[in-house]
């Protein structure tokens, strides 16, 4: 069975977490839930920095290229001169590319977040929880670390 430790206070929680890790319990066997983001927890558990920026970068590049190409190719598809501008009018199309950079970049970051944070999580939708009021450390059982903590 998994063991659960519940704290009301950030200080004691961090001390206890540090203690547990010092006692030799591997970080992977701990599940930590906090009401807000604590960079100290990340540092203690030795987590890798999030891979999310790669999603953002990928989305941004795809958006920029896609936006510019969308404007350029559709203009070439029906090449009619309007407003005395070239068919592929670079400055305005850069603008479309720029807006799509931000749009696809943000949406890709959001998608990447759902993927990395494993959301939506069906089991958590039904679970009774009050992580958002307390600091909780769940220590998974050494024998069967894969079971869902209850």
């Amino acid at each position: 069975m998994a063991r659960q430790l519940i704290f009301d206070d950030q200080q004691t929680f961090l001390q206890q977490l540090e203690q547990l890790l010092a006692d030799g319990i591997a970080g992977e066997h701990l599940e930590v839930r906090t009401p807000y983001h604590l960079s100290e927890v990340e540092a203690l558990l030795g987590q890798q920095p999030s891979k999310l920026p790669f999603f953002a970068l990928g989305g941004a590049l795809a958006g920029f290229g896609g936006g510019f190409l969308l404007a350029a190719l559709t203009s070439l598809d029906w090449p009619i001169i309007t407003g005395g501008k070239p068919i592929v009018a670079v400055p305005p199309f850069l603008l479309i590319g720029y807006l799509m950079t931000i749009l696809i970049g943000s949406l890709a970051s959001f998608g990447g977040f759902l993927l990395l944070a494993r959301l939506p999580r069906i089991d958590a939708l039904v679970e009774e929880q009050d992580f958002d009021a307390h600091f909780i450390i769940t220590i998974a059982d050494e024998v069967a670390p894969c079971t869902t903590p209850s």
Binding site: E31, V32, R33, T34, P35, Y36, H37, L38, S39, V41, E42, L45, Q47, P49, S50, L52, P53, A56, A60, I102, G105, S106, S109, F110, G112, F113, L114, L116, A117, R118, L119, P120, R121, I122, D123, A124, L125, E127, Q129, F131, D132
Partner: peptide
């Protein structure tokens, strides 16, 4: 969506919030 506030989720969350702000 089944947010539980685990440290795993929070670290991606913090990054996402920053990225969205940057965008």
């Amino acid at each position: 969506l089944g947010w539980v506030g685990s440290s795993q989720q929070w670290r991606h969350y913090a990054k996402l919030y920053f990225l969205l702000a940057a965008f």
